[in-house]
Structures are given as C-alpha cells and as structure tokens.
Nucleic acid binder design. Structure first.
Lengths: 148, 148
DNA sequence: ATACAAGTTAAAGTTACCTTTAAGTCAATG
DNA sequence: CATTGACTTAAAGGTAACTTTAACTTGTAT
C-alpha cells in the first residue's frame, strides 16, 4: 500500500506539517517521490516512522534521531553503533521511569497531605504532625521535601 | 537559615537565572526581600521550591504551577481544588510511566533485533524471521511496529 | 472545462522555558 | 576608600519543535 503525507499522518495520529518538517530535517531519507514531486510513503516507511516516534518518546532530539536514521541507511556496517545507541537509550528510559516513580511517591504524599487537611479543615494538621504520626511510606518523602 | 538566590539555586542544583525567571513569572510569591531589594529565601521556601520542581517533573506548565501556588497562598479555603489537582497529576504521571514502559519494550525489541543482526552479520536475519522464530515477548512489539 | 481538495516550497510565526547582556546597586574586605 | 563579587532589573537572545502562511501545482470529480 502507498500513502500520501496526509494519509500517513492520519495513520500515525500526527499533523501532516510535522511529517513534512521531519522530512525537511532529514529524518525521512527513505520516503520516495512521485514524478510530480508528491511524497509517496510505503508500508515499510511506517515502521521507520514508528521507530522515530519511539526514539522521540525517549526525549531524543531530532538531530540525533537523524544520525540514527543515517546510520541505518548505510546498511549492515553500522549495526554495532545502532545497537549501542539503542542500549544507551534503554538506560535513559529506565532512569526516566525511576524519576517518575519518585515523582509519583511525592504526589502520593501530597495527596495524603491535602486529604488529611480536607478532613481536618486545615493544612496545619498534616503540616505539624510529627514524623511518627504520618504513615510510614511518607516519612522519607517529607524529609526530602524539607531538605532534612 | 536564610539564603540568597545564588545559595538557594546551588542547593537546588539549578541556575540562579532560573529562580529569578520563576519569580518573575509569579511562581514564588512567598519569597521575601531585604531592605535593599535582595531576595531572601527561608527554609520553608525550600519546600515550596521542591513542590514546584515535582510538578515540573510531571510536565505541568509554569502558568499552571503558578495557579497552584496562588491557591496555596489563599489558605485553607483552597484545600479541595489543590487536592483535586494533585490527584489529577498523579494520574498523568501514571500514564507517563505506562507510556515509557511501552517505549522500553520497543527498545528491548530493537536491542534484541540489532544484537541478532550483529551475531549474524545482517539485519536481514532478524527482519525476515517469522513471528514464531522470535522470542515470545517481542512478537506483539513487532506487530505494532509494522502496523499489523 | 472548471472547480476543489490536497499536494508542494520557502519563509515567517509560535510557544515554552530559559539564558545572556547591560547597566546599575550594595555590602564586605584589604 | 577603592575593589570585588553577588545581587538587582529590563530587555534581548537562544533553542527545539513545530505550525502557519502564501503562492503555486496537481489529480480527480462533475
């Protein structure tokens, strides 16, 4: 199957202008053109676009994704650096998840904090509790928030 | 203890210009000034700054963090909307973690893909494997990448 | 044949979040 | 008492990733 830029954008759930921008930035060297200059996306291009989307979700910049695509276009000589890049990006995402989990613990503390404040009518109640009075799982979070 | 903008920035591991910018944007109404106009950060301000940092990590925009801080400055009348905001942000972070875990599965597939390509000398080997030939945990990922 | 939708480009505009610059003030030190 | 370093502000500059605009071309349907 073949797709125009609008059709492929719809399939990916992004704006056609985004695809054109990515092409302009050199991320889509694999996309061919019709005789009159219209982009023609192939089914195999969809997989590249999904990989680009995946790398974007890791926070990688377009210029770095471009380097990766360029390596892929070189063929089998670049398998090793591509593997290295993927492995590194995996570690990046693992670190991002760890940080979000820490953020989630902080939010859970704040939720308990405001929930307790709501029940008692004042934030003074949870704020002035001793460490021993608060649920065990929130003690470490409060110490970190207060810089202790 | 009291801190200048430079000292507090160091404690937080951010640039002093960032703190001044956040102040300018109205995120730090709790920060007082000395007689000559110098910002004086208190220990209790550190906790506010940690909360701002936490909300920023959830991807919340500065203007929305500002609204939250403004509510907090209103006092106990705004406990409920503050609780609601924290609860919503918790769900946002849970969704972000879920998406990053999906991204991680895709990267794990690509790592296996390039590792297999490296061992065999060509990406054609993992690319042309049948679904049954690839490790079970990667089958769903490949189907999704190929749009099948 | 004419209209219409969707494609093309280059260039300018937008947004969020800082960072840098320039010009000036202030408090402590040699 | 002059120098130093850190503070102040307003304004300009920077960056990444788009999005919009304008002017034009192309392919399909009536």
């Amino acid at each position: 199957m073949f797709y125009t830029v609008g059709e492929m954008a719809k399939r990916l759930g992004i704006a056609p202008s985004t695809l054109r921008y990515h092409d302009q930035e050199g991320l889509l060297p694999f996309v061919e053109r019709s005789g009159s200059g219209v982009r023609v996306f192939k089914d195999s291009d969809y997989e590249w676009l999904q990989v680009i989307s995946c790398l974007k979700k890791t926070g990688m910049q377009l210029k770095d994704i471009k380097s990766f695509i360029e390596m892929a276009m070189q063929g089998d000589e670049t398998i090793e650096p591509r593997l290295a890049l993927i492995t590194k990006q995996k570690a990046v995402v693992q670190a991002q998840i760890a940080e979000l989990e820490e953020t989630l613990r902080t939010l859970a503390f704040k939720e308990w904090y405001y929930s307790t404040a709501k029940d008692s009518g004042s934030t003074a109640v949870p704020r002035n509790m001793t460490l021993e009075e608060l649920p065990e799982q929130f003690r470490e979070v409060r110490l970190k928030l207060r810089g202790e």
